[in-house]
Amino acid sequence: MDVKASCFYSTCRRRDFLKVGALAFAGLNLPKLLAADRNRREISCIVLFQNGGASQLDTFDPKPDAPSDIRGSFKAIPTSVPGTHISELLPRTAKLAHKFSIIRSMHSDEAIHERARQYIFSGTKPRNELLHPSYGAVVSRELGSKNGLPPFVVIPEKDLSAEAGFLGSSYDPFVTGNPNTKDFSVKDLTLPLGLTLEEAQARTHLLAMLDSAFKNVEQSPVIDSMDEFYRKAFELISSPAAKRAFNIGEEPEKLRDDYGRTTVGQGALLARRLIESGVRLATVFHGGYDTHVNHEKLTQPLLSEFD
């Protein structure tokens, strides 16, 4: 798998991503597609999401030939694909244009950010009665985990749109926290200070004793699935490989600098690292594009981080 290709949809080939996206938007059957693919090859995918509604004029659809009251204040620049222009705020992205596709026709009639995100991440118009699962949750359910890692990861913060909805919270994403912090470690993944792995194991042993006594009396599906997650949790805590996957500190300093010492930069790098280790779908949220006032000033640094 070529993970170095692009920071957008790294290991998922472009056409495949489009296929999944298009199917989901048509409300068609993602599980079927996954099932069909299951035996052929692994699906891995990074979604980089510009939260808040990045202006198309200042990103991928600058409309250089439009009248001035439609154009934004930034200029368009040519890309590596002749005839395709994007905003001058994305010079590095422009050089990679031959490696990605741009869809300029998408729109949504959802006015609330949360609901619009839910729409785009589930492919189903949000309803008041039912929360449809996001792609990542479907991937979790259909493909399960690999190498003991959670199949669906969200970076940096939990987002209501990237959830499992009616599939049940078991398929919710695993949330990492902000990787662009000093001594970053994933929440609850490291043992409390002063507790050795042996001691943690002893505690788990004690717990198993209490639980087995209870299970002689009780039987219920909820007990079995709680057991399953405790087992997975302990695996994550105790497996050095899993820990390493989340340890962005192992990446060379130079590479970390190249990705940018920002939440989105380090988030993208962490996503890549996780995909390489066995996570199936990683979503990186890049926030703050909801610039109602002072738009140019606020957007410029965000896009430069992004680029």
């Binding site: 049940g168 919270s169 078991s170 943690a200 909820v222 997975k232 302990f234």
Partner: peptide, 15 residues
């Protein structure tokens, strides 16, 4: 949702 999650297990164990 009644279904347990990995985050719940981790937070109970380590949080």
């Amino acid at each position: 949702s009644q279904s347990p999650t990995l985050g719940q297990a981790l937070h109970m164990m380590n949080g």
